[in-house]
Amino acid sequence: MNVTTIWNWEYAFLVFPVIFRAMWVTLSATLLGFVLALVLGLVWSLARRSSFKILSWTVGGIVEFIRSTPLLVQLFFLYMAFPQIPYIGVALDAFTAGVIGLGLHYSTYLSEIYRSGIESVPKGQWEASTALNFSKTQTWIKVILPQAIPPVLPMFGNYLIVMFKETPLLAAISVVEMLNVSLIIGSKSFRYIEPITIVGLLFLLLSYPSALLVRHLEKRMKNRYSREKKKVTREEVTL
């Protein structure tokens, strides 16, 4: 192999399928982590609104703590430190630790998005629910969340893309996702240019169209929202 050539096509074609296969690990870590983040994020935001102060403060503290520490540290903690904790420690395989780490970390951001969505539901919707004698749970499920979530879907989409681009961090705890595979290939052949470039291109190939899609969704939501808003302002003027 000629070391002086900057880019060797033959070599690139050789390693591409190997890296491409590892994309499924990247994608499944992203999706599983995201689902976990969606569920936990909702739990956090509901718990923080609880009138039971001990619960809301505890959860508030946990959320702030997770958000203020680096994901990489959390990943190492889950993978290396957590199994050593007496009584509750369990050894996690690298992939599971990675998914939990990603999901937990991003759940704290998503909980803020849920919060903004919930707060954007007009107070009158809560009052109408009380007037119709809905229970707390019925009010959440039937009235508040169906209005709180659709407008923030684009923001969820943005975080999905951010999360996807953060998955190479999982290489640090030996998850064989795309970056890790390319590093392994590189260390064997001492050529890093092709494999790492391919990883970058694959990320670009997936995240750029997704970003466009999210932007499109955002625009549509914004149009819908401003239409509704315009109507409200008119009503307020006639008061």
């Binding site: 109408a128 119709l132 229970s135 039937k142 009235v143």
Partner: peptide
């Protein structure tokens, strides 16, 4: 029961569903 100044209908439900949700559920 109460009717509000700002109507407070549920914007994500049809007119019929606005009227039947509570009697059925509650």
């Amino acid at each position: 029961g109460m009717v509000f100044q700002q109507y407070n209908l549920f914007p994500h439900m049809t007119i019929l569903r606005n009227c039947i949700e509570a009697p059925i559920l509650v």
